[in-house]
Simulated scan of single mutants.
Amino acid sequence: MKNLLKWQQQLVPDLLAQMKVRYSILQSIRLNEPVGRRLLAQMLDMTERVLRSEVDFLKSHQLIEYQTAGMGLTNSGRELLLGLEDYMRETSGLYETEEQLGGVLGISKTIIVSGDSDKIPLIKDEIGKACASILEGLLEKKNIITVTGGTTMNSVAEALEHIDVSGKEILFIPARGGVGGKVIHQANSIAETMAENTGSGNRALYMPDVVSDELRSILLKEPSINATLDIICSADIVLHGIGEALKMAERRNTVEKDMDTLIKGKAVGEAFGYYFDDEGSIVHKVSTIGLQLEDLPAIKHIIAVAGGKSKAKAIRAYMKNAPPTSILITDEGAAIEILKGE
């Protein structure tokens, strides 16, 4: 296959370039259908004139159809898109990029989905599907899975509806308390959705993500909280997101003193309540009840999900602290930006 691709690139490079353009158009239509031509052109950074000729070609070959609300794929278009997936990943160099990214970050495995979720938010759903597929392959007979919150993690939760968990016993449990923002994006809600979509069990952790040191010491004396924490720390699998430092601080309603610390310390990324600078040094840590950074090395499988060019610095900063067995599932937007910085 690699030799064939090399020969094609040498003999008909324009053909491969054209395929990539049309594949991207089909993929973007699938993610956003029904979608209008103007919006699609903006997403793909193409002129409407160029896009018009391409979609006319795709329509003439019955791969897309025009609807009142916009363009959509035909069944033939969906079949073609699915059939070309591995081939296009190879021609676009995604497999090589995955290996390169894993080496740069010092982790065991990276999975990169096409696109940039900053430009097309529905790319998060593709990240979610990729995470669900990886998780399916890691499941054993009995599993405790601890999860964090976030919009990408919510996409993972929705994607779990389509995996096969027959014969598997799974307990989903939040890694920590609520951070702020929409309830649907909280760890408790995501753990519950994952349990519902897989017919599994879940256990809640109803408390704020940030507590005072005094309150933390009191809560840790509660037998029920300690029992939940024991389950969290004995997890077989951790599914977690990675946040941009200042955005996460705002969601937590961080006090002015701590916000100044983050700004002066040039914090760029956040995970598990720890804030990191570009070099991966810990700038600040919030007082929390739940999974801690030092708990991670004892956990068998750790899967991080985060995408978008804007998350590149955050991902790179956190990964300097991640166990080397970690798996990262991201998108091209983040991956290319991370590699640019090397």
Rank of each mutant, 00 (worst) to 15 (best):
G128Q: 10
F172S: 03
T148G: 15
V165N: 04
G115E: 11
S200P: 05
K141I: 14
A132K: 03
V165A: 09
P121K: 11
L160K: 02
E136V: 02
I112G: 06
V165D: 01
T193Y: 12
K168E: 02
S114M: 14
E158P: 00
A175C: 12
G178L: 00
T152G: 04
I120V: 15
T198W: 00
A157E: 00
H185I: 03
E196F: 09
H162G: 06
S155A: 15
T148A: 14
K119N: 11
I144W: 00
T151M: 04
I127Q: 00
G150R: 02
E140H: 07
D116W: 07
I190M: 08
D164T: 02
N197G: 06
S166N: 09
E161Y: 07
E192H: 08
G150F: 06
I127R: 01
I145E: 05
M194P: 01
T193C: 02
K141N: 08
G177K: 12
P174M: 06
K124L: 04
V179H: 11
M153T: 05
I144M: 05
T146W: 00
D125C: 03
I184E: 10
P121D: 10
K124A: 10
I145F: 11
I120M: 14
F172K: 06
D164N: 15
I134E: 14
L139S: 08
V147Y: 10
H185S: 12
D164E: 09
G115I: 06
I127K: 02
M194H: 04
V147Q: 07
I123L: 10
F172C: 04
L139H: 08
E126K: 12
V113C: 12
C131T: 15
G115W: 06
S155T: 10
V113A: 13
T151V: 10
I120D: 14
I123P: 01
G149F: 04
S133W: 00
T152R: 01
G137I: 04
C131I: 15
E192G: 05
V183W: 09
K129G: 08
A159Q: 03
S133G: 00
V113E: 13
A157R: 02
I144F: 00
K142T: 14
N188K: 07
G167C: 09
G167V: 02
D118V: 11
I120N: 14
L160P: 01
E192N: 08
S114R: 15
G181C: 09
E158M: 11
K129S: 11
K182Y: 13
I123Q: 08
N202S: 13
F172D: 01
A132G: 14
G149C: 11
I134G: 00
S200F: 07
E136G: 03
L138A: 12
I145A: 05
K168W: 03
P174T: 11
A157P: 07
I145S: 05
C131K: 03
G167A: 08
G150D: 13
K124M: 07
E161K: 12
G149E: 02
T146Q: 02
M194G: 02
A157C: 07
I127T: 05
R203S: 15
S133K: 15
T146V: 12
I112Q: 03
R176K: 05
A175V: 10
E158N: 13
T193S: 12
A195P: 01
C131R: 04
R203T: 13
S166G: 02
I173V: 14
I173R: 04
L122H: 08
